[in-house]
Write a protein that binds this DNA or RNA. Structure first.
Lengths: 338, 338
DNA sequence: AAAACCCCTGACAACGTTGTCACCGAGGGC
DNA sequence: GCCCTCGGTGACAACGTTGTCAGGGGTTTT
């Protein structure tokens, strides 16, 4: 900036005025400065600028998700970007891979960078470490999972309701031997979805088929293995509730290989690309809606909203595409009469 | 920082030393300062720090892709993140939506933020506006598309080869009426893929079926519409080369609705999640490999590599899953003998 | 005992920018 | 002709941090 000033024979302050488009500079001087800036390839330094304009915003928000390559996270990211774009804000995105340590490291790093806010799909079980930030009213919005150990805004899908809807749907179609495949116990959403499944059994007065409930199904491979194991049981499940999109993929792949796509009912949680073509019935969470709601909450906080934290729950939706409407297969032994 | 210094009775410089873990501070003092910092919720300001340590890195690289929600972009992002993670670098991600204006705006913004480098999947036709950055050796790596108007590193899939492979495969299975659906003319990759398709026709001495070549197919909906139109022709195509994953989705959806999934051959460009279950034959570009190569190039530049720009081409791979191996349907009128 | 050394610490300037204030000269009102 | 106003400009300090250098006190060397 000093160089530009020297080259155009004015003070640095005047260059600053030109660069920021402030009024009160003679057009002639303005042109001279602009020309010099262009000639010298001058690039405005936003970091220094923000440092000086003390209370100003950096125009960046941090987004921590599980894995930016996962369609859920990617859609969330995109919805947030769309929400932030009109406000000229950019996104610093990071994948956590369900790693608590990385979550804390990234959060700390982002705060040092003075991001204006955070969107967090937490990997950690508790987020007490954020207490100081909450105390000073730093905007943090939790997405898809509620905060624990602190209180701050969150927007999430009602996973429990979704799990309940899925299993209730299968029960309504006459299934009793329903397998429930969910991710690791430590993940709150997985717990909620399984709890919802249990709710549905209870509401229908059906005993939970304990031997068919599997948690810790954390990958496509594990899901496929689980399907194979379950279908080899003496009294195999006639329907499967798969608690996550990666699990659904493994389930469908395994069923396809076994030639059982048309005989075993499946309802998945999480829609994913092409599941319509696959005819997979799912509990759909509207990720775009989720992202938009999260963005809205964050923007409200950024513009000074001091109201108490809100915890919004969005209802998922059952999408019937065939796989969830398959009746119990006749191969399954008839239920003994009471 | 001054507050922490006052609270612990030392100078700001000593606080700086403690914060940065520099040696040469008495353990007792170090503890006192750390305690004060914790008590006052002190947060280190990386922006100011970087400003002072003049030539230092910000530890952020900008990544501009088409759409972070698209599986190609999302996977690229993830591969880059993995490449950068060991170097403690974070990613500022932005979606361009094939918009030239947004590309320039974001690039300018990121440069003002002093990102250490850029990864660009350009939306613009030419990138002359980057000339000053190239001149000062600012690290920019193009991904998936080569730069035009400037010369800098790029890593891309050989789209032309891929297009050729796809159509050659269909020709080898006896098809002659092969539809070629590609995205807008202005997108370089779409042009390359179509050119590859023409190469294949030429190499087989087959005349290009002009009435079946459609460009400007920019969405799933348009792809579906194109399929319907083409299949209603008096002499419909017996095979389809779909030049992009979104197009493939539209094609499959339309064929499914028409009940023609098993009678019309399809080879798609771009693998996407679940296409294996759909039995779709595709030209796969290894996005993870692409992202890793881009990351590697960028890291090399960041560590001072001054060699001339390189333009690497990665070969795509044909994955046969059934849809591309369907023979020409008999419904199609027999070719008139010569 | 003087000299040399080391450990620890702090004063100061500087990074690139902008807010504050003061200044200069031209024009307008009395 | 005097005072006031106002448009245009620049000097200076400050944002939060760290590199440089100097200094104080203790210990070791000669």
């Amino acid at each position: 900036m000093r160089d530009v000033a020297d080259a155009s024979g004015v003070s640095v302050k005047t260059v600053s005025r030109v660069v920021n488009g402030e009024p009160g500079v003679k057009p002639e001087v303005r042109d001279r400065v602009s020309a010099a800036a262009a000639r010298l390839d001058y690039r405005h330094n936003l970091a220094a600028s923000n440092l000086r304009r003390n209370a100003a915003r950096t125009g960046v928000i941090g987004v921590l998700v599980q894995d930016v390559a996962n369609s859920f996270s990617a859609s969330l990211l995109r919805a947030l970007e769309d929400a932030m774009r009109p406000h000229q804000m950019l996104l610093l995105a990071a994948s956590l891979d369900e790693t608590t340590a990385r979550e804390q490291y990234i959060v700390e790093n982002l705060i040092s960078r003075r991001v204006d806010g955070l969107v967090l799909v937490p990997a950690s079980a508790r987020q007490d470490y954020l207490a100081p930030e909450i105390r000073r009213n730093f905007p943090i919005v939790f997405a898809d999972r509620a905060p624990r150990g602190i209180d701050t805004d969150s927007v999430a899908i009602d996973h429990r309701l979704g799990g309940r809807m899925a299993v209730a749907h299968l029960l309504a179609h006459g299934h009793r031997r329903i397998a429930v495949l969910t991710d690791t116990e430590t993940i709150a959403t997985a717990r909620d979805r399984r709890a919802g499944a249990r709710d549905a059994f209870a509401a229908h007065g059906v005993e939970v088929p304990g031997d068919l409930v599997r948690s810790g199904v954390g990958s496509e491979e594990l899901a496929g293995a689980a399907v194979n194991a379950l279908r080899e049981l003496p009294d195999p499940p006639t329907a499967i509730f798969s608690g996550r999109n990666t699990i659904s993929k493994g389930v469908i792949r395994a069923l396809t290989q076994r030639g059982e796509r048309d005989s075993v009912a499946v309802v998945g949680f999480d829609d994913f690309p092409m599941s319509d073509v696959l005819g997979l019935s799912v509990i759909r969470q509207d990720v775009a809606q989720l992202g938009a709601a999260v963005g809205e909450r964050l923007l409200a906080r950024l513009s000074g909203d001091q109201s108490p934290p809100r915890h919004d729950l969005l209802s998922p939706q059952l999408i019937m595409r065939g796989s969830g409407e398959i009746p119990p297969s006749e191969i399954s032994p008839p239920e003994p009469s009471a």
